[in-house]
Design a binder for these strands. Structure first.
Length: 646
DNA sequence: TTTAGGG
DNA sequence: CCCTAAA
């Protein structure tokens, strides 16, 4: 994906949707694998090769065919296009070949192939495209490259582009990985492979078979190192290089200091080479799914296997552990795999963290905020208290957040948040800077005050108190002083919550805020903006209808009991706004009150109408002479009409 | 404390 | 939403 390989690459298109199919087929096994020419687009998609490309490849094949054993398909397909197992076996240098079969596809593919060869534009049926088979790819590579005996470098993680071409991950089989990983590589013909390979990287970076670093010269090792890690090294220590490379190739830190051989990402001490068993297992594994198992292919027989490793790290990590082959080798592998997983998790993490955090920042922030807020009001349902910011999803996420404890409440804060977005507004912010501990402390302190005060009384003022700690927290979280931004985001979230819950439940939901207390100066802060939910508006309207406009305290008490955060003043203000809105909208019937942007739900016209009615009614009823600016506002009660007037 | 209004 | 005057 990230790198676009513009070259013609052999084989098999891989489409996600077909992956499954592939898997199934693989499991069937022992059938020839078919490769088709495809080109990897910049975005990682596979595109059927064009005629020209096909021609090109063919030429290449022609040119170098001699080098490789004639590859023919049992079924008579053209060489280079289809490999049969037997053919592969015939290759000497190919010690291990990962192989997977796609039985069913064969036929279709063949046909496709022929069409392709015949010069027709490549029509790819879904099936064709889906043929991608990691194993097969691998085998191909090995084949193609093995003459040169290039050590293969499996780049599982982020690697330099050149490496990436060979990277296994391209071959993910049926894995969940949906995205378009650019399947680079595989070259259908040896020649093409060598070409692309050579042009991009060191020779040995291609081999996927067994690698015995012992045989490498320092220089070769360095090359291998470069191929493996994407960077050069001047180290001349053979052992070091060897181990390092081995680690890179196997993704394991456990590299024996003695001589060993690397096969398909596995380290093999000179002896081990179980075959039948291994084979069997590998098959099992392969069948078991697209789990990433790195199986050592001791012989050409082991075709199936291991290339499932294409799955993304994240995806894999969990699954791998689940594998539990009885075979020792496999166990070892598993162990290594675990290491790999652990290891692999880190890299992606970095990359993804940023992305994720960006994406999740908002969410997380909101959540954190809610947690805090909620916690402040003890009666809030616990479920929200510790809403796992990083749910079950992936561990990765967990890493991306840090745990912050505030006044006994804990929440996850994405690390990203720690980055400063704006300049601190206040001194205290500076003090806490990025020190979470400090922040926590500060917040705690701030929270404590209101907490203690809690329960003392209820009043319109309480809200101010509540808001104090929260805001501080926000600042803390942000690592700097900008409250506004966060606040906004947070509020939005809350609003949404309210909407969801509030609409039905009438709002009992949220907070029971009623704390009180010395607002202190902090009260200077502004109450959080809480968008009015439809539910609230309805209630308000009802309330007004029932008790009359102006009796805000009453309405609040009776109709907004559950919305503790709405004060009578709020109701009044809202009503005023509603009136305005309703009147404004009146003319255009349809516009709803679409002033500006109304991010939220526009108030349903019916409600506005109702408001209008009420207003009108009250105006009339009310004794209040000439309504003021906004249509008539307040007079008195609908019911208590007599009193008209404020 | 509650309302009404202005900002 | 906030603030305040007036009640």
């Amino acid at each position: 994906m990230e790198h676009s390989v513009g070259t013609v690459i052999d084989t098999v298109g891989s489409d996600e949707k077909d992956d499954k199919e592939n898997n199934d087929k693989k499991t069937c096994d022992s059938e020839p694998v078919v490769y088709q020419l495809v080109r990897v687009e910049g975005d990682g998609r596979l595109v059927p090769a064009t005629d020209d490309e096909v021609m090109e490849v063919e030429q290449l094949l022609e040119g170098e065919k001699s080098e490789v054993k004639a590859i023919r398909n049992d079924k008579g397909c053209l060489s280079g296009e289809v490999f049969s197992k037997s053919d592969l076996e015939g290759i000497e240098s190919l010690n291990s070949i990962l192989f997977s079969n796609i039985k069913v596809m064969l036929q279709k593919v063949k046909q496709e192939e022929q069409l392709l060869l015949s010069g027709e534009s490549f029509n790819h049926s879904p099936k064709c495209m889906t043929i991608e088979d990691p194993a097969s790819e691998r085998s191909k590579n090995s084949k193609a490259c093995n003459n040169k005996f290039q050590p293969e470098i499996t780049s599982r993680e982020i690697m330099p582009r050149s490496l990436e071409l060979n990277s296994i991950h391209n071959f993910e089989v049926g894995s969940a990985e949906t995205c378009s990983v650019p399947t680079n590589d595989a070259v259908s013909s040896k020649s093409s492979i060598s070409e692309s390979c050579t042009s991009l990287f060191p020779e040995f970076s291609i081999i996927r078979g067994e690698i015995c670093l012992d045989n490498f010269s320092i220089r070769e090792l360095q090359e291998a190192f470069r191929a493996t890690f994407g960077r050069q090294t001047s180290v001349k220590d053979k052992l070091w290089l060897k181990r390092r490379i081995a680690m890179g190739l196997t993704n394991s830190c456990h590299v024996p200091s003695t001589s060993f051989t690397i096969k398909d990402n596995k380290i093999i001490l000179s002896e081990a080479k179980g075959e039948p068993e291994r084979l069997q297992q590998s098959k099992n594994e392969a069948e078991s799914l697209s789990m990433n198992i790195h199986v050592i292919n001791a012989s050409p027989h082991d075709f199936k296997t291991s290339l499932n490793s294409n799955m993304t790290d994240r995806q894999l990590s969990g699954k791998r552990l689940g594998l539990s082959p009885s075979n020792h080798d496999l166990n070892d592998e598993n162990c290594q795999m675990e290491h790999c997983a652990a290891k692999r998790m880190r890299k992606p993490t970095k990359r993804y963290i940023e992305e994720l955090s960006e994406l999740e920042t908002r969410e997380c922030t909101a959540k954190s905020y809610s947690c805090v807020k909620i916690s402040e009001h003890s009666h809030f349902p616990s479920k929200r208290q510790i809403k796992p910011v990083c749910d079950g999803k992936t561990q990765r996420r967990i890493f991306s957040t840090r745990h912050v404890s505030v006044g006994g409440f804990s929440f996850e804060v994405p690390y990203v948040l720690r980055t400063r977005r704006r300049r601190p507004r206040k001194n205290f912010v500076d003090l806490m800077e990025y020190n979470p501990a400090t922040i926590s402390h500060m917040v705690k302190t701030a929270v404590i005050i209101p907490a203690l005060a809690e329960g003392s009384g209820s009043g319109s003022r309480s809200r101010e108190i509540v808001s104090v700690p929260v805001q501080i927290l926000q600042q803390s979280v942000a690592g700097e002083g900008d409250v506004k931004m966060n606040t906004k985001t947070l509020n939005r979230e809350e609003d949404l919550d309210l909407d969801h819950k509030g609409l039905d439940a009438n709002g009992d939901t949220t907070y029971g805020n009623t704390n009180t207390q010395p607002a202190s100066k902090a009260s200077a802060r502004r109450k959080h903006h809480r968008a009015w939910t439809l539910c609230e508006v309805r209630k308000l309207v009802d309330g007004v209808a029932k008790y009359g406009a102006g009796r805000w305290s009453e309405i609040r008490r009776l109709a907004f009991a559950s919305y503790s955060y709405r004060t009578s003043v709020d109701l009044k203000d809202k009503w005023r706004n509603l009136l305005r809105a309703s009147l404004a909208q009146y003319p255009t019937k349809k516009e709803t009150k679409n002033f500006g942007k109304q991010t939220c739900v526009p108030i349903p016209t019916p409600i506005l109408s109702q408001v209008r009615e009420l207003a009108k009614l009250q105006t009339q009823t009310g004794i209040k002479p000439s309504p003021k600016k906004f249509a008539g506002r307040g007079s008195r009660p609908l019911q208590g009409e007599g009193s008209g007037f404020l």
